[in-house]
Every structure is written in structure tokens, then in C-alpha cells.
Amino acid sequence: MRTFLLFPLAFFCLSLFTVACDDRAKVQLLQKETEDLHDDAMKGMSVINRVARNFKKEVAELDSIGTTTALERKAALLTVIEQMEKAENDMMAWMAEYKAPDSLSTTEALKYLQDQYQKMQKNQADIKAAMHAAKSLAK
């Protein structure tokens, strides 16, 4: 009778253990995916800053020209500079806020990482859009 009860109990414990391990593995995978996405997005940071610096130099030169064409170009450049700086600032803000979810429960960690992943996805898209906009203005 005792052996008869032990088997379902062992099975139940094993199932619980498997589910817990599965969830922990999901958290680890999502954490890696989020951080990989961040590393990938970071590759564009020095490029957008370099382009923004060059655009700022050009803006300073355009100031002294003052023609309508020059003013239109200046306005377009300033818009893209702002777009690039926003993408850069958002990345810095993400990094300052992001924490590896070591102290959270599995459910909380998954929720937190899903949110962080989405934020990083948006940031990466913003960086790419800024680079694309800059390309269209490059001489």
C-alpha cells in the first residue's frame, strides 16, 4: 500500500521539478536573447554619433550661408540629429534601468524580460530608422 502511494507522489514531484526547470530555462533563454539584441543594437551607436557630429559641423557651416536652400537643409539635418540623439539617449536609459532578473520569481522574470525585450526591439528599430534617415541626407 505504501509503495502504491509512493509512485504517484514521486511522479508528482518529478513533474513539478521538470516544470520549474523548464521555466527557469525559458528565463535564461529570454535573458540571453534580450542581451544579444542589446549588443547587436549597440553596434550602431558609434556610427550614429559619428554621423550626428558630422551633421552638426555642417549645420554650423550652413548658419553662415543663410540661403533658403541652406536653411531647408539645416532644418532637415537638425531633425535627423534629434532622431539620432533620441535613439542614443533611449539606449542609455535602457541600460541604466535594465537589471538581470536574478531576484525575481520565474513568472515575474519572464514578464520583466518580455517587456525589456520589446523595449530593446523598439530601440533597435529606432537606431536603424535614424541611420536610414541619415543616409538619405548624406552627400
Partner: peptide
């Protein structure tokens, strides 16, 4: 570097 850099 960044103080709050999670990876590298």
C-alpha cells in the same frame, strides 16, 4: 565603458 552595461 558604461557603468550600467549588462553584457560586455
Amino acid at each position: 565603458f558604461f557603468i550600467h552595461c549588462p553584457t560586455i
